[in-house]
Amino acid sequence: MSEPLLRVANLRKVFPGQGTADDLVAVDGVSFDLQQGESVAIVGESGSGKTTTARIIAGLETATDGEVLLDGKTVAGRGIGLLRAGRDIQMVFQDPFGSLDPRQRVGAAIEELLAVRFRQPKAERRARVAELLEQVGLDEQHAGEYPRSLSGGQRQRVAIARALALQPRLLILDEAVAALDVSVQAQVLNLLIDLREQLDISYLFVSHDLAVVRQISDRCLVMNEGVVVEAGTTADILDHPGQPYTQQLLAAVPRPGWVPSRRAATA
């Protein structure tokens, strides 16, 4: 197999305890590879360490131990500073309301990145902004609007357009559709599925929602209390979960004929 796009090896993160509290091991020995063009999901509940893992890979958090390689080059890990991956790794966050500068028009927000990173002439930037907006299913007219006049779904589209503007190789989506209404969630999810086909981009998709993960990822890692409990192809894991924790997660998803059960959370 060729060199993976992303290699995460033995990643560990310990948050020192405040005062008398014990140290918190948020991520404990996480390792996985992600191939070019692949979509890998990290699944888990709150406190499982999935978001911390993603933030370390993005360079927003330092690691206590282990390393993260992008194209064989170390971009995060023990002793490595923040934000070393450059524009190759971009991230879309959960909160559609905080993800954009409230006082910056949509067009300006995208143009700013183009101006700083590519030093294109203004006319070229304008054309690229229009192209990016179209790519995420928005109009050119949206370029002149402030985030407050957009709906949650539209804001999330702008956040995606901004991330794509830098032509990253890996896009980290941290619960990117979790805060959206059901009907809008499907729109953004479909957009993400289409974009991956068009752009040959790789996704690291962090989510608690197994149904969403099923649609968007090739492989998934199930995390619990900082540890990867199960990893494999998404279809395999969701159809034939091997670990009790994964089974519990699946059993807790409401579906036709589902009865809530008290035992689900005892682990």
Partner: peptide, 13 residues
Amino acid sequence: RLPYVEACQLAGL
């Protein structure tokens, strides 16, 4: 603390 600030950092501003 707003996520857009982190997004700007990731973008290399």
